[in-house]
């Protein structure tokens, strides 16, 4: 048994244990694990830093956005990147959507981004990136539920 195969198998086991709505048929691992960025950065389209509004200033947070763990602050952070709230997570050609998750107290926990294939990509903590079918594949005790969907014109589309 190669080490890579063993690690891959263990990762799938851990992921499916933590997120019971993920099954072998609705997600795939798309990157090695990395401590260098988190889901909030990944949803914003970057993979070079960890985004979080922590009070000790150990993570990146956009200048001018309140450094507080509230949905309002996260919406404001993504607004800086051109996202606006929208009603549905359904795929729309020419738009890029993100989903922000919150726990039962309304505290943000996770963010996912829709790909141009209509699936969703998530970075799981300091573990791997995964691609999954729907935002609600990740609901549960770790990330709570989707609180808001936002969208912006897809950066890959030429302006009309």
């Amino acid at each position: 048994m190669g080490k890579g195969a063993r690690v891959y198998h263990l990762s799938r086991y851990w992921i499916e244990t933590a997120f019971p709505f993920l099954t072998s048929s609705n997600y795939r691992i798309t990157s090695p694990e990395s401590p260098d960025y988190n889901c909030i950065a990944w949803a914003a389209g970057t993979d070079d830093r960890w985004w979080w509004p922590d009070s000790q200033y150990t993570a990146y947070w956009p200048d001018g956005v309140p450094r507080e763990e509230t949905l309002r602050a996260f919406i404001q952070a993504y607004s800086r990147a051109g996202y606006v709230p929208c009603d549905t997570s359904d795929f729309e050609s020419g738009s890029e959507k993100i989903a922000i998750y919150t726990d039962e107290n309304g505290k943000p926990t996770h963010a996912a981004r829709q790909t141009q294939a209509g699936r969703w990509t998530s970075k799981l903590g300091h573990q791997e990136d995964i691609e999954h079918d729907r935002p609600d594949n990740l609901t549960g005790s770790y990330y709570g539920a989707v609180a808001i969907i936002m969208k912006r014109p897809c950066p890959c589309q030429p302006p009309v």
């Binding site: 401590p35 260098d36 960025y37 950065a41 070079d48 830093r49 960890w50 985004w51 979080w52 922590d54 000790q56 200033y57 150990t58 993570a59 990146y60 947070w61 300091h126």
Partner: peptide
Amino acid sequence: KRGQWFWAMKAITNEDPVKPEQRGIVA
């Protein structure tokens, strides 16, 4: 192996050698 050790180091040492522009860049 890189990880989120910065909070602990700040708490224990009461120092922070990280520049503001480096915040979040774990490496």
